[in-house]
Amino acid sequence: MSTIKLTVNGKAVSADVEDRTLLVHLLRENLNLTGTHVGCDTSQCGACVVHIDGRAVKSCTVLAGQAAGSNVTTIEGISKGDELHPMQAAFRDNHGLQCGYCTPGMIMSSIDIVNRHGGKLDEETVRQELEGNICRCTGYHNIVKAVLDAAGRMKVSQAAE
């Protein structure tokens, strides 16, 4: 057992976990942040994507201990109070989700995609970049639309800041 200290969604937290504990399980089991999901056991599906120090990472590939001292953001930490993150709003407005299970990971990956590509996103790039996130419900059509829509919204909201 080890005590892991890290920052999650802006709050300093600590948890006592077995050394083999994955970050995703620390989030879900110890911190009750169940928005981060587990969809596979081979790091293929992306349901577990969170941001570590601002970059999208599959939290099932990271030991909790490796995340010690880092700054983790989960799906629960991206809206400002009642105000949704533009990516969240774009997923809703474009019907980019059905069962919602892949959605937190999709949104976290997509924010990272837009951050990295800025305004230079096109459909093909979004599709390639989403290769590590599996959705069984939507056929990706509306997810791609949502990401492109959000890319525009995020540019606007950054400009406003």
């Binding site: 009750n32 629960e76 969240q88 989700l97 919602g100």
Partner: peptide
Amino acid sequence: VVRKEDRRFITGKGRYVDDIK
């Protein structure tokens, strides 16, 4: 109409069986 149920899913507040303690 935009879906009513979406808010909980996009904010990580869905409640799936494995989330229940």
